[in-house]
Structure formats: C-alpha cells, structure tokens
C-alpha cells in the first residue's frame, strides 16, 4: 500500500506574508532601525533558516522580506545582472511569498536587492538598496577574536586597520583591496562595503537612498542612511582610486564611465545590464 505524498502532507499551511513569521520580521525590522540610527554599526540579529543556503544571500533576503510591503516593487541583481541564477531565484522567492511586483528597471524599483554591485545610474530618495553580505567584519584580517573586534569597534580603534593598509602599500606599492573596501561611515564606524567594487564606494557617500547590509551567515545587519559621509580609508598622500582599464568601452552601448567587466574574446561590457540596455534603447 502506498499513500500519495499529498495525503501524507495533509492540507498545506500557507506561508505568512514574506515567508518569515511575524515575530522574525519584527526582530529584523528592529535591527534595521538600530542600524539606521547608528550608521555603520553591526547590529546582531537572529538570522533565520531560509530556503537558500547561508552565504547565498540569506541576509539580504531576510532584510527584503522584512521591509517589503504590498506597494513595493522589487529588483534583484547579481553582479549587476537581473538574469543571474541567484538573482532569478531570489526574485521568484520574494514575489511568490509576498506577491509584490518585480522589475528589472532600477528607476521603478522601491527595493533593490543586490550582490556585488550598486546600480550604475543614480538612485533616488525613498529607494532602499539591500546588499547581501558574506563577510561583514572589516577587522577580521587584523583581529580574529570576535570579542576583541567588538571592543575595537566600540573604542573606534582602527590603528591596526591603518597599519594593514600601510603594509599593503609597502609590500605591493598599491592598496590591493579590491572588493569590500573598508570605509569610515559617519566619521565613526569602519564597515566592509561587502563585496561591491571600489567603483561603487563613492555612490554610498552622501547618497539619496538608504543602504541596508544583511549578513545571514554572520547574523549582522548594518546600514548607511541617506546623506551620510562614507569615506574610503586612505592616506592623505595616497588618493583613493577606482577600477579603470585604459581604452576600455562597453561593446554594446559604448559606455566608458561605467563599471565594465571583460567577456573573454568579446571585449568589455557594462556590468549593470539594465542600465546598458536602457542606454542602447535611448540611442
């Protein structure tokens, strides 16, 4: 005798709005409020089990699901691409558990969840950028102990961070850190701008939009509110530089002033596919 799987499961209990239960959403919203109130401070939160593996965007997903309302329009990108596997799956999950509208147009979105990029075009007031963060702790390379890391943040003691930048310059002649470049937020906390390229760091400075960083595996949420200073750590006599390849231009839209990625054998293309497509439609 075999029973159909449906019989064993019984009547399906519908998920609550946004997959997470109400208590969880409330806790995450509280963590976000604290993070906004103390820019750059990593707020611990009870990261829930999500239907994606930790380290695959579970932190960003929890933030998005906790803040999404019926009127929101959600865009999800992975490396600037709306069609990346991770982006497609997360967008479907968000849409099916909330019913919110989705878009690929950064201008229409109210929430942009992202891994590795900030949209190329300017974001406006009222938009929320949700970043998926694998490693939220900028001090990890210089201090392994979690209690010590917290102590250093609490005392604003970033001397060893500066020493590591000094060592980098001495050994390599340049600061080698590429993604997740450490930035001082609001003159107080150093954050890992996890893992967006240097190119995107200036977009977080005095921005119109709110940026919320969610690290699911590490159980931390931090934020950069609009109109907050975000300064990449660098020496007075060593200017902060962003990625540039001399002579590179997007083979699709011709853009030079954009974050470009190399397609082997094809040349350079814009990392932000939506922005690139809009430029091509306009011309």
């Amino acid at each position: 005798m075999t029973a159909a799987i449906e019989d064993l499961l019984g009547p399906a209990a519908p998920y609550s709005w946004g997959f997470l239960d109400e208590q969880s959403k409330r806790e995450i919203r509280r963590a976000i409020l604290t993070a906004v109130a103390v820019p750059g401070y990593q707020v611990p939160f009870g990261s829930r089990e999500m239907p994606v593996a930790r380290g695959w965007g579970s932190g960003g997903l929890q933030v998005t699901l906790a803040i999404a309302g019926e009127a929101d329009v959600v865009k999800v990108i992975d490396q600037g691409d709306d069609a990346g596997v991770n982006a497609v799956n997360l967008r479907r999950l968000i849409a099916s558990t909330t019913g919110v509208a989705t878009t690929t147009d950064a201008r229409e979105a109210t929430i942009v969840q992202t891994r590795h990029r900030v949209p190329e075009g300017p974001m406006r007031a009222g938009q929320v950028l949700v970043l998926q963060v694998p490693v939220p702790e900028p001090l990890r390379a210089v201090e392994r102990g979690e209690a010590e890391q917290r102590q250093l943040h609490a005392e604003g003691d970033y001397a060893r961070m500066w020493v590591s930048l000094y060592e980098d310059l001495v050994r390599h002649g340049v600061i080698t850190c590429t993604t997740g470049y450490p930035c001082l937020v609001g003159g107080r906390y150093v954050i890992a701008t996890s893992p967006i390229p240097r190119w995107d760091c200036p977009k977080l400075h005095q921005s119109e939009h709110l940026s919320v960083f969610g690290a699911g595996r590490e159980k931390r949420i931090y934020a950069i509110p609009p109109h907050t200073d975000v300064e990449p750590l660098t020496f007075e006599d060593v200017p902060f530089e962003v990625e540039r390849t001399p002579g590179a231009a997007c083979v699709l839209c011709g853009a030079v002033e954009a974050y470009l990625v190399e397609v082997p054998g094809r040349g350079w293309v814009c990392s932000d596919t939506d922005w690139c497509a809009r430029r091509r439609r306009a011309s």
Binding site: D157, Y158, A159, R160, W162, V163, Y166, L169, F235, E236, D237, V238
Partner: peptide
C-alpha cells in the same frame, strides 16, 4: 601603529 592611533594619516 601608535602614530596611526594618534591620528597620523600621511604615508
């Protein structure tokens, strides 16, 4: 290290 802690920022 103590220099950076004292606010030196000029490499």
């Amino acid at each position: 290290e103590p220099l950076t802690a004292a606010g030196w920022r000029h490499f």
